[in-house]
Each structure stands twice: as C-alpha cells, then as structure tokens.
C-alpha cells in the first residue's frame, strides 16, 4: 500500500515528467522518465514546497548518497527520513 508521502511524490514526479502517476513504480528511475537536470531541480523544489523540508541536493553531485535519487522508492524513503528528522542509511553499492 502506498503511503501519503509516496502518493505525493508520485504526483510530483509524474507531473514533472508529463506522465500518469499510474505508470510509475517505486523502481522507476528519473533517467527512465527522461528528466534532465533542470527537471530534477524542479522535482526537488516541489518536494521542498510540498513537504516543508529542505533537501540537501547539489546538482554537481547528484549521486551523493545524502539524498538518494536513484529511484522513486529511494526518493520516498529519503523524504520520509527528512520528515522524521533522521539521516537516511548510506546507500550500499
């Protein structure tokens, strides 16, 4: 079952990628959706505005594990950690 956080993130990313949220899964990556660097920055901004959080993200180091953007599921977990005020576990591999 999807959490509220996940629903909102699906909506944000679907809107940015011009897709139907039903097409997305937690395994979907932003690359697959064709989101470029500007699209990614807009997604991050929308997440910050929707959830009232500050996302640690530098476009020069998108792969840094501090905020994992490797899939929609990873983004959801990272936002849940931000909301809980905890640091996410470092991504393995």
């Amino acid at each position: 079952m999807r959490s509220d956080v996940q629903d909102k993130i699906f909506d944000i990313i679907a809107r940015e990628a011009l897709r139907d949220p039903a097409e997305l899964t937690t395994e979907t990556t932003l690359d697959e959706l064709g989101l470029d660097s500007l699209g990614l920055v807009e997604v991050i901004f929308a997440i910050e505005e929707s959830f009232g959080v500050t996302v640690p993200f530098n476009a020069n180091e998108p792969g840094k594990a501090e905020f994992d953007i490797s899939s929609i599921g990873a983004i959801t977990r990272a936002v849940e950690h931000l909301l809980a005020g905890t640091r996410p576990a470092q991504a393995v591999a």
């Binding site: 920055v41 991050i44 901004f45 993200f57 530098n58 476009a59 020069n60």
Partner: peptide, 8 residues
C-alpha cells in the same frame, strides 16, 4: 541558490 549549482 535555487539552481543548486553553487558550492557550499
């Protein structure tokens, strides 16, 4: 800052 291209 919004563009997220600056180094901290």
């Amino acid at each position: 800052e919004g563009l997220r291209v600056m180094s901290p």
